[in-house]
Design a binder for these strands. Structure first.
Lengths: 168, 168
DNA sequence: AATATTCGGATATTAAATATCCGTATTTAA
DNA sequence: TTAAATACGGATATTTAATATCCGAATATT
């Protein structure tokens, strides 16, 4: 079982957008370059985030991406769901309805006990991710960076941030 | 994110072996036929279970597979782990160490906050699966089967069970 | 109004993981 | 000794993920 790598990149991208507030953003190029990931694939993730309403975009010259909601209102589950889709990892193929002792489909109204068990575990996973907000990630990262590195980041921000004021 | 389909088959196979107790088993052919899954692929899963000490095997004529431990001592996590391997779904690629503002590797002793967060969620998933024992699955399935179907299963068992006494 | 820049989306292309199958060796009851 | 069964390694096909390319639509700037 392996998670879509795009989830990692999308989460890093959101972490990078977080300190900018609602009125500033970064272009796709900047987001891709910052972490050295291929631009077209980064675009795919950002578009998924955009569709899910996690980031908003503005096009044309000086366009880019900005967070669409407060950092306390974006959970890791939101991001994972947006990029990785809504399907559960365990997908019941109803093999109980096959073979010499197959259950007739009339008796399969209740979900297979095995599928139900895995679904409960995935619900626990989901709830854990729901409890982790972008704000917690950002403050954790900030707490570990040293002064020099923060300087680098600030300089990079100043060179790349684009204005994306929210219009009423 | 999609789970290895073999986990489903392996779990069903264990569920089928559970009522037989430690001294009786089923051949690979029987296990594969019961749920109508391809035999060579079923073999792969059973061998994984065997390596993990969840089932024991006996080779040669009248050989087969039997559970190696009491049904209360086998969790869904054990099975998932045996078939799907130990690697986490989220794998940090350390992209914080790449790009124009890359963190020097000296500062990356503590794990990336994002990776750590996903790891916590996977721990919740693991703990949930650990809490679900094969015994619970078996009794749940048994509770939902009707009398006629149970008759079918008993007849099938009688035709396919092989003796696999535990030798001291 | 023209233009350069940027996102959106569709579509290849490549790489990786999963699923399936086969052949041979090894074990064991009869 | 023989027949029947699993173990193991590898070969192949299928599916999914990752990467790259392209063109059209939108928009800020000139």
């Amino acid at each position: 079982m392996r998670m879509n790598k795009g989830v990692e990149w999308a989460t890093h991208a959101c972490t990078l957008l977080a300190p900018l507030g609602p009125d500033k953003g970064l272009s796709l190029t900047a987001l891709a370059d910052y972490h050295g990931v291929p631009q077209p694939y980064m675009a795919k993730q950002m578009q998924a985030l955009s569709k899910a309403g996690i980031v908003r975009t503005s096009r044309g010259k000086s366009g880019g991406y900005a967070l669409a909601r407060p950092v306390d209102d974006i959970s890791l589950w939101d991001i994972k769901q947006a990029v990785d889709g809504p399907e559960p990892a365990f997908r019941c193929t109803e093999i109980r309805q096959q073979g010499p002792c197959a259950l007739p489909s009339a008796e399969c109204k209740t979900p297979c006990a095995i599928a139900a068990a895995f679904a409960r575990a995935e619900a626990a996973y989901r709830d854990a991710l729901r409890g982790i907000k972008l704000s917690a990630i950002v403050s954790d990262v900030a707490g570990h960076a040293d002064a020099k590195h923060i300087g680098d980041i600030v300089a990079w921000y100043q060179a790349h941030v684009t204005e994306m004021p929210v219009r009423p």
